[in-house]
Amino acid sequence: MDSQEMYVGAWKQSADAVVELVPTLSAEQLAAPTDCPGWSVHDVVAHLAHLEEVSNGEPEAPAGISVVASDYTEAGVAARRDVPTADLLAAFREQTATRYAFLSSTRLDLAETAPVTPAGVPWSWETLLRNRAVDLWVHEQDIRRAVDVPGDLDSLGAQVTTHTFAAGMGFVLGKKVKAPAGTTVRWLVTGGAPVTIELQVGDDGRARRAEPGSVADVTLALTAEAFTVLAAGRRGPADVPVEVDGDRELADAVLGAMTLTF
């Protein structure tokens, strides 16, 4: 499986999961708050419908929707807040089917700039496809946590998301925590999408893969679900189970800085 197939497959699996799950939810569940501040389950569906419409080149609705990155997703949800969930889901289903037909039949140069992206950000095809896979799986999980229907923690979307966030831990340790040279941190991520991350800060302040045999100053053991919840900024360190072995102060600094944007 190449990168395009992997990203498209992960995105489609999560899209299908949302299409299957949402119609089973009650009105109370659709109104339930999610870990996205101010967003209900209905609002998450509105967000997903919005971005898939945009990805297919549909005009923004209503005309004049904000294209400022920080306001863009909120504006898309606000514009659809009064649209029935069933209508949003029907639009989402139609748009993802159209998108999948194109992405599964067209070989893309992933290094090229994608012609249409949310808010017009200058992403390559690879960045766009990866980010859509991550965004959709993360929001699928937002819905599942809100209605207490766990699932897809070992799916292709879970794998793509966990490894994407794992690749950002060097930025967390070196640039956000600004740990001193020689600091070594190990993340032991278990569960449906396991990964081990071992990073060491160099003299230049950058965190790189630790040398074999390096002794970690702290080891953070947590499930892939907890890891992605932290990295996606959905909950804080006090709200997810993490086992800490080693420097507690360093652990707290790393855990508090794990939120990534993508």
Rank of each mutant, 00 (worst) to 15 (best):
R107G: 11
D109S: 10
D109P: 06
D109R: 11
L110A: 04
L110I: 12
L110T: 01
L110P: 00
L110V: 12
L110Y: 00
A111V: 01
A111T: 14
A111F: 01
A111Y: 02
E112I: 05
T113K: 10
A114I: 10
A114C: 10
A114K: 01
V116T: 13
V116P: 03
V116R: 07
T117S: 14
P118H: 04
P118W: 01
P118F: 03
A119D: 14
A119L: 03
G120R: 10
G120Y: 05
V121H: 03
P122E: 11
W123L: 11
S124T: 15
L128W: 09
L128A: 04
L128E: 08
L129C: 07
L129F: 06
L129N: 00
L129T: 04
R130I: 12
R130W: 01
R130L: 12
R130Q: 11
N131A: 02
N131K: 08
R132W: 06
A133F: 06
A133L: 12
V134F: 02
D135C: 05
L136A: 01
W137A: 02
V138D: 00
V138G: 02
V138C: 01
V138A: 07
V138N: 01
H139Y: 05
E140W: 03
Q141P: 07
D142P: 00
R144V: 08
R144E: 12
R145S: 13
R145N: 07
A146D: 00
V147F: 06
V147C: 12
V147W: 03
V149I: 13
V149R: 15
G151I: 10
L153D: 09
L153F: 01
D154R: 10
D154H: 06
D154I: 15
D154S: 15
S155A: 14
L156R: 07
G157H: 10
G157W: 03
G157Q: 06
A158R: 09
Q159R: 13
V160F: 02
V160M: 10
T161D: 08
T162M: 04
H163F: 04
T164W: 02
T164K: 01
F165L: 08
F165W: 02
A166Q: 02
A167Q: 08
